[in-house]
Computed example of a mutant assay.
Amino acid sequence: MKKLIATVTLGISMLIATSPAFAYTAKSGDTMGSIAKANGMTLQELSKANPQISNLDLIYVGQNINTTKATTTTSTTTGYKQVTPASSSDKDLLARLVEAEAGGEPYAGKVAVAVVVLNRVDSADFPNSIHDVIYQSGQFSPVSNGQINNTPSADSVRAVNEALSENRSLGAGSLFFYNPSTAVSRWLDSRPTTIVIGHHVFKK
């Protein structure tokens, strides 16, 4: 019996140790200032704990907010603590796709496009690397029309760094995106919508 109790206690301890650092999900009307106050933090402390949020005046409903004071350092080059593995060539390729697909879209839309690729890497229904997801036949038009080779903007690079950080909540679960006003095929219309940003509709 003691052995069983010890095993159960160990299991609970492991669950607690591996639980996500995020402790709050943003709701309508929330601001970073109000979240900080509600959790006994200064705005600076909350900002430091959430390096994935580059604009403190812009948070999204459903976005995960870390309300634990930061104890880790972030990259001095990107400003984000990368938690999803990606080589420099993967990040460059993803930034070029983001630029080609969402160059004229809001910054949040750029992040969400990058998240779609990362979600596909994690999905059993798609290839298991950023390169192979992007180059999967018939998936992304910039690959076939050559726009994938264009130089990405600073915003597209930053969006990729953010998507690779803790901020995978933007467009959570999205595996597809399209522009309804220009899409030739509308088969995605029947799939569940996760979020709409700019001209893009994101789908599961």
Rank of each mutant, 00 (worst) to 15 (best):
Val184Asp: 14
Pro85Glu: 04
Asp125Ile: 01
Asn179Ile: 02
Gln147Glu: 02
Val61Met: 13
Ser144Pro: 10
Ile65Asp: 12
Thr72Glu: 15
Ser88Asn: 07
Ser13Phe: 10
Arg158Val: 11
Gln136Ile: 05
His200Lys: 07
Val113Leu: 05
Pro85Ala: 03
Ser54Val: 14
Leu43Ala: 12
Pro192Phe: 07
Gly171Ala: 07
Arg158Leu: 15
Thr73Pro: 13
Thr84Trp: 12
Ser47Lys: 14
Met32Ile: 06
Glu101Leu: 01
Arg96Met: 04
Tyr135Ser: 12
Thr193Trp: 07
Ala159Met: 06
Asp189Tyr: 05
Leu56Trp: 09
Ser13Glu: 06
His199Asp: 03
Leu97Ser: 04
Ile134Leu: 02
Gly40Tyr: 13
Ser47Ala: 08
Ser123Cys: 00
Thr71Leu: 11
Val8Leu: 13
Ala23Cys: 07
Glu105Gln: 07
Val201Gly: 03
Gly171Pro: 01
Val160Cys: 00
Ile148Arg: 13
Met1Phe: 08
Leu175Trp: 04
Asn149Glu: 09
Phe202Gln: 04
Asn167Cys: 11
His200Cys: 07
Ser181Tyr: 14
Pro192Glu: 01
Lys204Val: 08
Thr74Asp: 09
Gln52Lys: 15
Lys91His: 12
Asn179His: 05
Leu97His: 01
Ile197His: 14
Ala163Gly: 03
Ala23Asn: 12
Ser153Pro: 14
Ser87Glu: 05
Arg158Gly: 09
Val113Met: 13
Leu97Ala: 05
Met32Ala: 11
Leu4Ile: 15
Lys48Ala: 11
Thr18Val: 10
Val157Thr: 12
Glu99Asp: 08
Lys204His: 13
Gln147Met: 14
Val196Gly: 10
Asn145Val: 03
Ile53Trp: 06
His199Ser: 05
Thr68Gly: 15
Tyr135Gln: 09
Arg158Ser: 12
Ser123Gly: 01
Gly146Ile: 02
Val196Glu: 10
Gln136Trp: 05
Ile130Ala: 00
Ala159Tyr: 04
Glu166Arg: 11
Ile53Met: 11
Ala183Trp: 11
Leu118Tyr: 09
Ala38Asp: 09
Ser190Gly: 00
Arg120Glu: 02
Val8Met: 14
Ile59Trp: 06
Met14Gln: 07
Asp132His: 04
Gly11Val: 08
Met14Leu: 02
Asn149Gln: 11
Thr18Ala: 10
Ile197Lys: 07
Lys81Leu: 10
Ala86Val: 00
Phe126Pro: 04
Met41Gln: 05
Ala21Pro: 08
Leu175Lys: 00
Ile59Gly: 05
Ser75Trp: 08
Ile65Cys: 10
Asn55Thr: 09
Gly109Leu: 04
Lys37Ala: 06
Tyr24Arg: 05
Leu93Glu: 06
Ser129Trp: 00
Ile130Glu: 00
Val196His: 08
Glu166Asp: 11
Thr25Glu: 09
Val83Ile: 10
Phe126Gly: 11
Arg168Gln: 02
Gly146Phe: 06
Gly79Pro: 06
Ser156Cys: 12
Leu58Phe: 15
His199Arg: 07
Arg96Cys: 00
Gly198Thr: 00
